[in-house]
Write a protein that binds this DNA or RNA. Structure first.
Ligand SMILES: [Mn+2]
Ligand SMILES: [Mn+2]
Ligand SMILES: [Zn+2]
Ligand SMILES: [Zn+2]
Lengths: 163, 163
DNA sequence: TTGATACTGAGACTCAGTCTCAATACGAAC
DNA sequence: GTTCGTATTGAGACTGAGTCTCAGTATCAA
């Protein structure tokens, strides 16, 4: 079950950091989320649970866990960073729907291989990368989905709580 | 020579927008820059030239030219967006040195092709993408280049005015 | 000219993220 | 378990890139 939280603890302890209660609460939210979470999402979820954690602590913790390699951080250009668990799952990159905000994950080993090739070409030591493709998911289609009225409320599909 | 500025004018006019003097000044800076420029860079260059343009206008213009497809916008996670000319040159992606801030451009048609393949796989209509690889350039090497003292002023190579 | 419209500049404003610092929790050592 | 030094937290002030507002100005057509 929650072996994941132990991995988190280990990663912290390896750097002389402790898994305190606030940190555990934040970590659990991200670990169990089925979508990419922003700091504000975590903040509000914890508030609703009756286990509030200070804003600064949430930000600090997310940053810290990214540094420890247990979370991945992404910026889809929406003005806030989002996080997802990184431990216990394979690397992937993202498609981002500019119509509804849906995030689709993909893996393409061939691209990863070519990236290595590119970095070698420039004698570059790659540490991490960010590969995002922006466009319209199958439900949003190539153009504004609604007819004429430029009302453009982003459509809400079931799995579209992403950002 | 500056056929480029005519292309800019055309792209604007195609959308019923005018190439005013402030817009031309901003455009010329980006068109002639040999590096990626942030809004503040443009602002200050124009100020120094004795042809100041208001901050809001610079931001508006950069955004506008991105929308028109004449500039490309990138966010390398340094808290400010940077721009470069897009017209009259082929698409490329970037390596970003987290040691010195150098930006290396690369093209890899095979990756572009595989991206198309990925988007088809998900019935996704790609509009644009962002592919960045972060790490250390050949001059910065795999670790902090300086010895023990964690003074860590980012090293300054000649072409490192990038950001 | 006149009027309609696009654009600019100055500065107020926003808001995600950071910083400060006093209060608190914790872990190690008595 | 008491004591002490250090790590952490919470509350709120602060930062700064980018946006918004709006009155004044330029541009164009009739
Ligand atoms: Mn993901
Ligand atoms: Mn470039
Ligand atoms: Zn990848
Ligand atoms: Zn590309």
């Amino acid at each position: 079950m929650d072996r994941a939280i132990d991995k988190v603890r280990d990663a912290l302890q390896a750097r002389g950091l402790r898994l305190t209660k606030p940190r555990r609460l934040v970590a659990e939210k991200v670990l169990s989320a089925r979508r990419h979470l922003a700091a504000d999402d975590v903040l509000e979820m914890l508030r609703r649970d009756g286990t509030p954690v200070a804003r600064a602590t949430v930000y600090r913790t997310l940053e810290m866990m990214k540094e420890c390699g247990t979370f991945d951080e992404h910026d889809f250009g929406r003005g806030r960073k989002v996080y997802e668990r990184a431990i216990g799952r394979p690397h992937h990159d993202h498609l981002y729907c500019i119509g509804c905000g849906a995030i689709i994950e993909f893996q393409e080993p061939e691209i990863e291989r070519l990236q290595d090739q590119v970095t070698r070409r420039y004698h570059f030591i790659a540490m991490y990368h960010s590969h995002k493709i922006f466009g319209y998911c199958r439900r949003c289609g190539p153009k504004a989905p609604s007819g004429d009225k430029a009302h453009d409320e982003p459509p809400r599909h079931q799995d579209t709580k992403n950002d």
